[in-house]
Amino acid sequence: MADSASVNRWTPPHRNDERSIPELVEGFVNDDASAFTELVKRFQRNIYYLAYRILGNHLDADEVVQETFVRIYRRRKEIENVASFTSFLMRIATNFAIDLLRKRKGHGGLNEELDSLSGETQTELSRRVRTPSEMLDDKVTMQEIRKAMDKLAPRQQITILLHDVEGRSKAEVAAIMECTEATVRSNLHIARAKLKQILTKRLSV
């Protein structure tokens, strides 16, 4: 595993190759094997980074990358258009990653417990935190963020990863998660509040 310096956010796959994404998707749906191979090349990184962020290790990220493409290959006839290809692909990836995550964690009580944090509790929390911006300084390492992310319920984790980490829009996140934008907003709010709480507590201990 080489340098971790680069901030690998989601970026639209390169378009400098001969065929555009819409052309490739069209070819893929019509059993053009070379189109599929090219789509794998263009999207494998996006899936790997997302899976790594969810699962935190190379082996699991690798499994998600492989399994996602194997599954979308088998289900290629279900793809209706280009827009649906991207969200379908990312949906397969996130669903499989969530399954793996649940397997790795076992059936945890902690997440359920955190899930039930009400709005009131959050406000109470914010009152307790006197100078949060001072506490949440650069000492919060990426590893601590990872640990904090682990405490979120899977769907909240994915939502905040797609939106705040990868910089996708709420509409895109909603398409991938098969939910409304309102749900994206509410999951995002809960996830941010929990992360803030966990990270702040971690530092003050």
Binding site: D3, S4, A5, R53, I145, D164, R192, L195
Partner: peptide
């Protein structure tokens, strides 16, 4: 401040390149 800090930290997180 805390919420903005969380979002900015998340935006900076990176994945080790294989």
């Amino acid at each position: 401040g805390a919420m903005a800090r969380v979002k900015s930290l998340l935006g900076q997180s990176s994945v080790p390149e294989p």
